[in-house]
């Protein structure tokens, strides 16, 4: 499969006042054309930062890419001019944001928020953009008469549909979905996911699905990457990783899912708190929470090894 997006050895820091937070510490990630990759991790693991880095939209004067390369469709994203980048954002790469309540501008109509993408990228005039927007809204299940309404008049699920309609407006090659259903009701979640799945197939869009919900990954993605402390700790096909997890963090995550079938067991939780990016532990950043921690884990950053075909793990003392 041809690579669409390739992230190599990416490092990102946030600097506010005198403090430095190392949000991403050497991420390698590849998404092929038409492929769906799930990026899993707790809050603060660096998932959203990865997504924003791809769009080169880290908060100005706060977020810095200190090292690494991001290649999209054979071209380096970080070397593009502002103008080239604007041409790609929203048309070739688009993003659905985590919180539909805050990611739509409250003082513009939902119709306009989709039309502006069309006007900008497809150079449509107002009338053409409106006609196109009506089609997009129909696709995500919003009737035409609601285009002139404002975001606050919609429920969370409906707003996320607007977000998705805007993201798909220019049939992007890569869709980044940053926890698109976290802020929504469970029933709405299912609808939205179903819709995304259909649309992704229909347009053969590549998908970077960011979530902390393994169920969503299993349903939508072919590949999965587990992120911890700003690093990918395990990567492989969904089947392989879920059936044969090697990293103790992945195992912890899988064990934390309640099982419906079989005997009811006590849920296992991963002890401790997620790694603090302002004060990352030395060695493997997961070691303070790991039951199988060794001397080596505390001192040396684990190298990434291929344990099975296409299945990579970064752990000194992985499960065998």
């Amino acid at each position: 499969m041809e690579d669409l997006l390739k992230i190599e050895d990416l490092y990102v820091e946030y600097r506010v006042g005198g403090t430095v937070a190392k949000a991403i510490n050497g991420v390698d990630l590849t998404i092929g054309k038409g492929e769906a990759l799930g990026l899993v991790g707790e809050s603060g693991a660096g998932k959203t930062t990865t997504a924003l880095s791809v769009l080169n939209l880290l908060p100005e004067k706060i977020g810095f890419i200190t090292k690494g390369k991001i290649t999209f469709d054979g071209r380096s994203v970080l070397d593009m001019s502002d103008k080239e980048m604007s041409g790609i954002r929203g048309s070739k790469i688009s993003m659905v944001f985590q919180n539909p309540l805050t990611s739509l501008n409250p003082v513009f109509t939902v119709g306009h928020q989709v039309e502006m993408v069309l006007e900008h990228h497809k150079h449509l005039n107002k009338k053409e953009a409106r006609a196109e927007a009506v089609k997009l809204f129909a696709m995500v299940g919003i009737p035409e008469y609601r285009l002139n309404d404002y975001p606050h008049q919609f429920s969370g699920g409906m707003r996320q549909r607007v977000g998705i309609a805007a993201a798909l407006a220019c049939s992007p090659e890569l869709l980044i979905a940053d926890e698109p259903t976290t802020a929504l009701d469970v029933t709405i979640q299912a609808q939205i996911l179903e819709m995304m799945k259909d649309l992704q197939k229909q347009y053969s869009t590549s998908l970077l699905m960011i979530t902390h919900n393994l169920g969503i990954i299993a349903e939508l993605c072919q590949k999965v990457a587990i992120m911890y402390g700003g690093k990918i700790v395990e990567y492989g096909t969904v089947e392989e990783v879920f059936n044969h997890p090697k990293h103790w963090y992945t195992i912890g995550l899988i064990n934390a899912i309640p099982k419906l079938k079989g005997e009811r067991e006590r849920l296992e939780s991963i002890p401790g708190l997620v790694a603090n990016s302002q004060d990352l532990p030395g060695g493997c950043s997961f070691h303070p929470r790991c039951r199988y921690c060794t001397e080596q884990c505390m001192n040396e950053i684990p190298a990434t090894e291929e344990v099975a075909e296409g299945h990579y793990v970064a752990c000194w003392n992985r499960r065998t």
Binding site: L55, D82, I88, F97, T102, V107, F108, H120
Partner: peptide, 26 residues
């Protein structure tokens, strides 16, 4: 600092237009 400004930028709208149109009204 709002999400919707980042979201607007993610749609490819230029910084200048975001400032003078989308952030301006708010």
């Amino acid at each position: 600092q709002e999400d919707y400004i980042t979201a607007t930028r993610a749609k490819g709208i230029s910084k200048f237009k975001v400032y003078t149109k989308y952030a301006f009204k708010n």
